[in-house]
Design a protein around this nucleic acid. Structure first.
Length: 445
RNA sequence: GAUUGCAUAGCGAAGUUGGUUAUCGCGUCGGCCUGUCAAGCCGAAGAUCACGGGUUCGAGCCCCGUUGCGAUCGCCA
């Protein structure tokens, strides 16, 4: 038996200012190594930092040219003040003057398949994904996923602070949220099962327990879409809550949530924001527009007549995004009152507007990032609506039971993490905001 | 499922009307360089032009097929 004292030796946050002129030892990966006759510069990738080391050939135990890019090294040296221009390097106000470098490991390849040492990665999206374990090491790729990580965390932090309880619903399910189409089938001990396309049923059931719940988890879509805004597996940021004032409660809380996330991004990701050269919006108001109004605005502005269409075309979303930026000074537009026929059966109709629902999409920079709305909460209403939609109730018994037990007025929304990340980071394809994207062609790495 | 485009060295690209040895940048390798920050300078190696067939005196380039990939639509977040 060994009794070991607990310490913080694995903490990875470094008080650089307090280490000035002091000797330090760090283990890191070689991001880049620029060799010169007098020595050179070693750019070292540490947890949370990319730090510059200075090598003086005369006082170093090894030759700088023997240090391999993407090798792992243990360096010992003294922290000195500095002023570094490279935005990928942080901290940029100090550097380590090294005296000892131990190479712990080296790549086994003679030549790495892509060059991660330059300012831009400069690869096709296909190569980028094929060589993902390497390409993700590029500072700009790292930045995307640090931003994604903060969004994920702050989504949970904000909701937890506002009385929501985190839930983890099953991903192996008996039925999909829409009735069984376009979902991945799998063998479950000889029975047919599916990968969950949405936590919808479970988060509703949990509203009956906690009143306010959220979940951040993957969902699976078997649709053969092949576009720059679709993934077959993505992270869905979901909430579901009791409503006091109808579905406007959802729009209020989503706006406050995004405001919180954006403010935290500015606070925690200033290096990444500067490196990517992106702008995080300031949220200071809510702009809503009814579904039918969007068709009218698009018609008035462009002459393109989508009136009578039961959904928004991607072109319309882009146009209304531009229009909102120009005329309403906002990048976030809530489009409300979508047609009943285009919304799932659990969506509540607006009793004052024939054929329209108490639901909305949130468009950010002209792309849909959220669908939300008020749900039916009376058992008989479900039976009626499902009949009208041609759905049999048998497959949904496990779900529908909750409405027999009594349910409050409630609603929720789902936010696509990769879509939000890619729009914030100015990426041209949502897959670039997925670590290891799954699309119609890609199953690995 | 539909429309459209692309495939040239490890990576990213150029290649004219079909014409001799396929060009450039990065990376790699060798040499040089006292502070870089997409480091710099000199040199070298590296290509079955995706695969199969066809037209032609001659194909990276034109045609057909196959495979792989990108973009767009439907659908969605």
């Amino acid at each position: 038996m060994n009794e070991i004292a607990i310490n913080d030796s694995v903490s990875s946050f470094i008080e650089w200012d307090s280490l000035l002129e002091k000797e330090v030892t760090f283990t890191g990966m070689v991001q880049n190594c620029r060799v010169s006759s007098w020595g050179g510069f070693l750019i070292l990738r540490l947890p949370n930092y990319i730090v510059q080391c200075v090598m003086d050939r005369n006082s170093l135990n090894i030759k700088p040219e023997d240090i391999p890019v993407e090798g792992c090294v243990k360096v010992t040296g003294t922290v000195k003040a500095s002023s570094i221009k490279d935005k990928a390097i942080h901290p940029n106000n100090c550097e380590i003057h090294v005296k000892n470098i131990e190479v712990l490991s080296s790549p086994s390849l003679e030549q790495l398949p892509v060059d991660t040492t330059k300012k831009e990665l400069n690869v096709n999206i296909h190569t980028n994904f094929d060589k993902r374990p390497l390409t993700l090491r590029h500072p700009k790729e790292q930045a995307i996923f640090r931003i994604s990580s903060v969004i994920f965390n702050e989504f949970g932090n904000f909701l937890t602070d506002n009385g929501f309880t985190r839930i983890c619903s099953p991903k192996i399910v008996k039925t999909g949220a829409e009735g069984g189409a376009n979902i991945f089938k799998l063998d479950y001990f000889g029975r047919e099962a599916y990968l969950g396309q949405s936590p919808q049923f479970y988060k509703q059931m949990m509203v009956g327990v906690f009143g306010r719940v959220f979940e951040e988890a993957p969902v699976f879509r078997a649709e053969k879409h092949d576009t720059s805004r679709h993934l077959n597996e993505y992270i869905s940021l979901d909430i579901e809550m009791m409503l006091e004032n109808g579905f406007m409660d959802l729009i209020q809380i989503e706006t406050r949530l995004l405001k919180h996330i954006f403010e935290k991004l500015k606070e925690k990701c200033s290096n990444e924001i500067a490196l990517l050269g992106i702008e995080i919006p300031t949220v200071d108001k809510i702009v809503t527009v009814e579904f039918d109004e969007v068709h009218e605005i698009v018609f008035k502005e462009t002459g393109k007549d989508y009136r009578g269409e039961k959904d928004l075309a991607p072109e319309e979303e882009t146009l209304i995004g531009e229009y909102a930026k120009k005329n309403w000074n906002t990048e976030l537009v809530f489009v409300t009152h979508y047609p009943t026929v285009k919304r799932p059966f659990y969506t509540m109709d607006d009793s004052t507007k024939e054929g329209r629902t108490l639901s909305y999409d949130l468009l950010f920079r002209g792309m849909e990032i959220t669908t939300g709305g008020q749900r039916l909460n009376v058992y008989e209403d479900y039976l009626e609506k499902m009949k009208a939609f041609g759905l049999t109730t048998e497959l949904f018994e496990g779900y529908l039971q909750v409405f027999q037990y009594g349910m409050p007025p409630h609603g929720g929304f789902g936010l696509g993490l990769e879509r939000l990340t890619s729009l914030l980071c100015g990426l041209s394809n949502v897959k670039e905001a997925s670590l290891f994207p799954r699309d119609i062609n890609r199953l690995e790495p």
